[in-house]
Design a protein around this nucleic acid. Structure first.
Length: 279
DNA sequence: AACCAGGTTGACG
DNA sequence: CGTCAACATGGT
């Protein structure tokens, strides 16, 4: 077990960050801390009084102390200056309200393959069911990487190799419906090296988007989610049913130009606001 | 019983 | 180019 304390410039709200529809494998424990399954690790996260984040991390493939810290700083995108972002966004009345409604959201840099498969599952689906399908997938095809407080086993997200080896019949227990085919084809594309995180990160957002759109089950919305959550392109802008409503009522002429370079981060505040504030 | 959920696809004008 | 039904599943 390794303890890591992160010091974000601006306090992070773990509940808002983990419950805003970007990550599906964090859950709140009875004690108030969060339990997360992140790239082979079992992590518990809690907010400290001074705005720091305390992480307790377990797993067989942990890096050394410093590398592990860098991993988590990257995961929480501590290189992004949220204080400056908040200051700039406050020029826009709607964004200002959205940020006040749930301050401390951060767009996480998650694993590419997990984001790809998870957001393929997300199409025409709801968040509780996405979670349950992903959990079943990990339980069936992931590796056991630890246990929770009650002794229940915890599983990693399946590797591309494992998913690529399956047939559609194997996915039936997930109850993912017609998404089965897209899940397997995407896994095979990654496993074969036809598509890879390294390539997509190196070629810029427009090139990466074009590649992603070639995959079955990846249309405009899922592609933006993978760009934003799985590849760290913060300019990506997913437009789902909720965001379409938000855009129609608040930004009929589009987002303000100064927001565009980080449109994905603005989107995350607006999405959470639109879904949870009953405006 | 319709309708919806972090949509995409293939067919048809 | 744009529009549109069909698509699995489970919840309201």
């Amino acid at each position: 077990m390794m303890e890591i304390v992160l010091h974000p410039g601006l306090p992070v709200s773990l509940s808002a960050t983990f419950d805003c529809g970007q990550a599906f494998r964090w859950r709140k424990m009875d004690c108030g801390a969060f339990l997360g399954l992140v790239q082979g690790r079992v992590a518990t996260a809690r907010e400290l009084e001074d705005g720091a984040i305390s992480l307790h991390v377990k797993g067989s493939g942990l890096l050394g102390k410093e590398a592990e810290r860098l991993f988590w700083e990257d995961y929480f995108a501590l290189d992004v200056d949220y204080a400056a972002l908040h200051l700039a966004y406050a020029r826009d009345g709607v964004l200002k309200r959205a940020m006040a409604f749930s301050p401390g959201i951060r767009v996480l840099r998650q694993d590419f393959f997990e984001a790809l498969i998870t957001f393929i599952i997300s199409q025409n689906n709801n968040i509780p069911r996405i979670r349950s399908i992903v959990e079943k997938m990990c339980m069936l095809f992931g590796e056991e990487i630890g246990t929770d407080g009650c002794g229940n086993p915890l599983f990693s997200f399946p590797t591309p190799k494992r998913l690529a080896s399956l047939e559609t019949g194997d996915l039936a227990p997930l109850r993912a419906g017609y998404r089965d085919r897209a899940i397997l084809e995407a896994a095979r594309s990654v496993e074969s090296g036809e598509i890879s995180s390294g390539l997509l990160k190196s070629q810029g957002i427009d090139g990466a988007r074009k590649e992603l759109l070639k995959l079955r089950g990846v249309g405009p919305k899922v592609a933006e989610c993978v760009l934003l959550f799985g590849l760290g392109y913060f300019g990506a802008f997913p437009l789902d049913t909720w965001m379409k409503k938000v855009m129609a009522s608040f930004y009929p002429g589009g987002l303000p130009a100064f927001v565009m370079p980080t449109a994905g981060i603005a989107q995350q505040y607006l999405f959470h606001y639109g879904r949870n504030s009953h405006i």
